[in-house]
Every structure is written in C-alpha cells, then in structure tokens.
Nucleic acid binder design. Structure first.
Lengths: 199, 199
DNA sequence: TACTGAAAGTAGACGTTGACTAGTTTCTAG
DNA sequence: CTAGAAACTAGTCAACGTCTACTTTCAGTA
C-alpha cells in the first residue's frame, strides 16, 4: 500500500491549475488556500511553501494570465493572412475569447492594486503589450501608421479592446454585441488614424 | 448621560458612506461588515437589517457608483460650450477623474458577476449609458453622426473610455498618459466615424 | 390612547478562513 | 555521510460572514 509521499513534488503547479479552475467555475470569492490544499491532498499549511499568502497566489495567477493571453493572441495572429486589418481583428477576437472563457481571471489581471502591480505581474503585462506593439509595428510596415505613432496607437487599441472585454464580462453587453463592437472599433480606428495622417 | 438610542436612525446611509471611504482608502479586501458596524457604533448584526449579506452591500455600492458617475459626467458636460468634440472630452475626462478617485469602486462596478448584475445595478448602469447616449445624440444634432449609428458608437466610446480608465487604475499607465490617451481616442474616434460616413 | 405587528438592533454561536509557529520529513549539495 | 535548506505537518489564533433567538422601538390603527 503506497503511502502518499511526504513531498508532493508538484504542488505549486497543481495549486495554480486548480486555482485557475476554481476561478473559472466559481469566481475569485470561492478561491480558498485551504480548499486548494485539501483537494491537492496536502495539509492546510503546505501552500505556504510556495505562496507566502493569498495575495501571492493571486499575483501568480495574474502573471500566468498575461502570459497565456499574450500567447493566444500571437497564436491567433499567426494563423491569419498578412493583412493588417485582419490581423487586428484576429488579435481583438482572441482577447475577447480569453475574456469570455476567463472573466474572473481578466478581472484579477486588471484589478486595482494599492501600490501598483508587483514586478512579476508588471513584466508579464508588458509581454502582452509587447505582442500588441509587434502587431502595430507590422501595420507600420504595411503603411498604416507612422512609426512615431505606434506607442500611443497601441495603447489606444489595447484600451479599447480591454474596454469591450469588460463590457462583456460584466454582462453589460452580450458576447455577440462584443464581437460586433470589435468590428466597429477596428473600422473606426483604422479610418480615424488614416484620416489623421492624410487629413 | 445620554444613552445612545436603540435606533440609529440613519444606519443604512452611514454604512454606505463609510464603506465608500474604506473602499477608497483601503480597497475592497479591507471592507468588513463587522468593522463598519463597530465604527457606526452598532452591534455586528445590525447591518443585516439593511443588507442581507456582504454581496448586497457591494451591490448597493456599485449602484451608487453608477449613479454618481452618471451625474458627474452630466455635470461636467453641462459646464462646457456646446461643441461636440469638447463635450466628448469633458465626459471622458470626468470618467477618468472618477476612476482616479475611486479605482476600487470602478472595479466593483464592472466586476464579473456569475449571473449578471442584479436588477438595481443593471438599471443604474443603464442610467450611465443613458447619459452617454444623450451626449452622442447631441452629436447627431451637430451633424457628427447618423442617428442610426448612435447605439453602436455610444457603446464604442464607452468601452474605450472604460478601457483607458482600467489601464490607469491598474497602474499600467500614468494618469497623464491616460489624459493623453483620451485626446487620442476622441480624435481618432471622430475622424474615423466621419471617414466611415463620407469615405 | 392603548395595542399590535413590523422594523431595527442586540447577543451569542458556528464554521471557515488566512496567518503564524514549532517541529518533522525529505531532498540536495558538498 | 552529513549538514542545511526546502517541503510539509499539525496546532493555534483572531477575524469574518452568517444564522438564530430575543429585545427594543416605531408607526399605524381600532
């Protein structure tokens, strides 16, 4: 009869994955260190070896969220012809899909923090912003923007997509309204930028 | 010696105001029904007469937040000349100021809810949306939009401003970057919409 | 005015949680 | 082989949300 080993061997990863599932299925309020420990079959103090406190776990979740979102956007963009408008659409749609699947996680990623996000989260968020910047850089190659405008325009596009996602996750609008909104946003964005340059 | 009266007389209002202060100064995690009761000088069970549970208090806070935000936007808009671009700017700036002053409350207002927001919150949110729609309607009068586009364009503008606010409250960008972003957003928005019509 | 039911508040209890501490087992590097 | 670090256990504590039974006050009506 195999006694379970003293060392779980994998605890940190298991806790994070269970936590993501709980977040997805029951929201952040249902996320308890003790419950995670129970379901992982370890004592209630065990998570402490990997996360100093609950906030540390939440930060790790947010960090992973940013990394995953960035990857999913990159992935989505890579599977679309090299047309800038379609690229924007692919990126924004991937963002919205993420929001749809993990609303509580997205909340967590952009939650207000007293002294700003911890370094690990900040850098993961920058990774996402880096992906967005890459997409906009491609737009420069395609002649859609001036290089000097990429910074502010990336920010504007990111904010818009984030705002649309928020409206969806907070149930202010439906998913399909969200999809329509993305079309509108990209259309207005591209025309607006173009008009700013040649107007 | 005046014994404090059995009936507080004002408890609900006092709890809400204290709660807003706590939210503003220490964030949502620091918001405890028992602490609110203590500071109001009532027993720990007293709040239950006015809010069935903690969630009910949070919902009431979100509701008031929407009402206040809507009022502040209307107020800001009213104090600006009847130029549409400047009106948009006044509205967006008021929104951002609200976010800046009450980041945790804004989070709460747009937090993910399992089954969507309760009716009271939903209707307060619609009040905000109503104010935004009114602003856009004025844009129709001024010839900036087709009447048939007001719905989607109001949504787009609201999402964009909300997204910018989120970037600021989550400390992804500074307040002054947020202000610049608002300028960019409105500029691109107006030109983009105009180009869509006459392009 | 006295009465009565509803509303508002009290007091105590319960289970759960996050956090802390001290001690134990396992791993790992020298 | 051994020492020290890392991982985990077990027990404790205060705080919280919630629930229940009870008491005080208020407001409307007979």
């Amino acid at each position: 009869m195999s006694h379970r080993p003293f060392h779980h061997g994998n605890l940190r990863a298991v806790l994070l994955e269970q936590a993501e599932a709980v977040l997805r299925e029951r929201g952040i309020d249902a996320l308890s260190l003790r419950e995670l420990a129970r379901e992982a079959g370890v004592s209630h103090g065990a998570p402490r070896s990997h996360f100093v406190d609950r906030k540390a776990l939440l930060d790790a979740l947010a960090e992973r969220g940013f990394v995953r979102l960035a990857d999913q956007i990159r992935e989505a963009v890579s599977q679309v012809p090299a047309d800038h408008a379609r690229t924007l659409h692919a990126a924004a749609s991937a963002y919205l899909r993420f929001a749809e699947r993990d609303p509580a996680l997205l909340d967590l990623m952009f939650a207000t923090k007293a002294d700003g996000p911890p370094e690990a989260v900040r850098s993961a968020a920058e990774r996402l912003f880096g992906v967005m910047t890459g997409i906009m850089d491609a737009g420069v190659e395609a002649g859609a923007y001036d290089r000097s405008d990429v910074g502010r325009l990336t920010l504007l596009l990111s904010a818009t997509v984030q705002g649309i996602s928020t409206l969806v996750t907070s149930r202010r609008i439906t998913v399909s309204q969200g999809e329509t909104l993305i079309d509108d946003a990209i259309s207005v964005f591209l025309r607006g930028v173009s008009a700013e340059r040649h107007g």
